[in-house]
Nucleic acid binder design. Sequence first.
DNA 1: GGTTCGAATTGAGCCACGTCAATGAAACTT
DNA 2: AAGTTTCATTGACGTGGCTCAATTCGAACC
Lengths: 249, 249
Amino acid sequence: MSANPEKDNRMSESTKTTQKPRHHRCDTCDVRHKAMCAAVDYEHTDQLQAIVSHRDYAPGQVIFEEGDPADYVFNVSNGEVRLYKLLPDGRRQVTGFLTSGDFLGLVTDSSYAYGAEAIGQVELCCMQLGNLERLLSDIPPVRERLLDMSRDELAAAQEQMLLLGRKTAREKIFSFLLNRHNHLNRTDGDASVDLPMSRTDIADYLGLTIETVSRTFTALRDEGLIELPNPHHVIFPDMDAVRDAAEAA
Amino acid sequence: MSANPEKDNRMSESTKTTQKPRHHRCDTCDVRHKAMCAAVDYEHTDQLQAIVSHRDYAPGQVIFEEGDPADYVFNVSNGEVRLYKLLPDGRRQVTGFLTSGDFLGLVTDSSYAYGAEAIGQVELCCMQLGNLERLLSDIPPVRERLLDMSRDELAAAQEQMLLLGRKTAREKIFSFLLNRHNHLNRTDGDASVDLPMSRTDIADYLGLTIETVSRTFTALRDEGLIELPNPHHVIFPDMDAVRDAAEAA
DNA sequence: GGTTCGAATTGAGCCACGTCAATGAAACTT
DNA sequence: AAGTTTCATTGACGTGGCTCAATTCGAACC
């Protein structure tokens, strides 16, 4: 079992609502096509613009905690966010990592169903829950879009259950690396993956301890399957070999 | 790691589409208030009725497999269904159990994202995917309802990730029993739980082996926390004691 | 250039749970 | 009612990953 306070990473409540309202324009937003907002047509862009604002978060800063009253929902415009659930004794399960375009703010009984923290510097686009609901009734395609997005999220969640319940440490690491490679690889030929999160985050995401994560990375390095120029960057010298090894076990 | 062919449980492909088209009426359907259909108003009930049909499934029968082309979506009208994902070597993760009112047929790229099998005798209400989509555009509240339902499902999935990644065998069993008790307890004072599924299903749902599930049940029985008149029925002699023990670890 | 401090790595030992194997208890067949 | 099959339980033993405890590495400081 792992506990992981990450004490100092967690900013005080007072800094939590730190807000530097910049002027962002929805019509030139570069993550719009990936986000929920893609379903807002040209005519309604003004309405969208009117209800969104921006917030910046420092590394480690809490965005919201599980159970907080959910007044706002968010879109990630920049940076990486971790979602997590805690047990009373501090054990943590990271349920997902979000990047630009992802929707944030799952709600049950008008409170957040999980906690969310900035991993590095993060920029969020946010709107009040009430405004989202108004948007949903005014512009039907937005609800369709949101349904599609949560359909994908649900499929990813099931895949993660398979990983957590039935895969070995080695398989978990392989799946994690290959998933990241598939989902966020910008340039096509790039056989490398960035890992902005800490070993603790990875461990809590895969249901392992930091020691096991570290040892597994080292083992893969020693086998020549990956290179580790630094703990936050993985290079695949031979992508096919990795895929073979991943399937073998 | 557990493999579990459940060979003979699996009916042949030919029996798979076994269909005994009965006459069911949406306007008197007794699971309607729990299902997606609750969002279809009185005026549209005929339209709903026109596109649904019923199917019966025998215990162990495959409803669909992961990757099958998804032509139909379903509502469970009766019985219990297991959802699962498989690894190439046969290891299985049960991702959920469904009962009456639950929606079935998560789709990605127009194929099913998981497999589904009847646990006992099962009755499903089904409609073609295209008809569902037409329903969604014709009756906006249905999409809203579906979004709400998948919101809840997603929250449950995250809870399950916490269980799989961070809880001990004992805690997993406690959570499983208490969840069942909370979610499907008909009569209010009833301190018991039915477990229609096999030990293998439970093990694959909790990321354990059948032996560990069995041993944990026995341990709880020996401690006087539960009674086991038979493997498919659990009685809690002292509900509060169970809740305390569950929190203690 | 040395100090500090957090994160990552490495080592040694252990234990919760898995594996393998036997037994028990129902339900089904004939 | 004896044989067969399936599922659950129980026992003996092994091990993958956890725990506890050092190092090591780097970045940010004077």
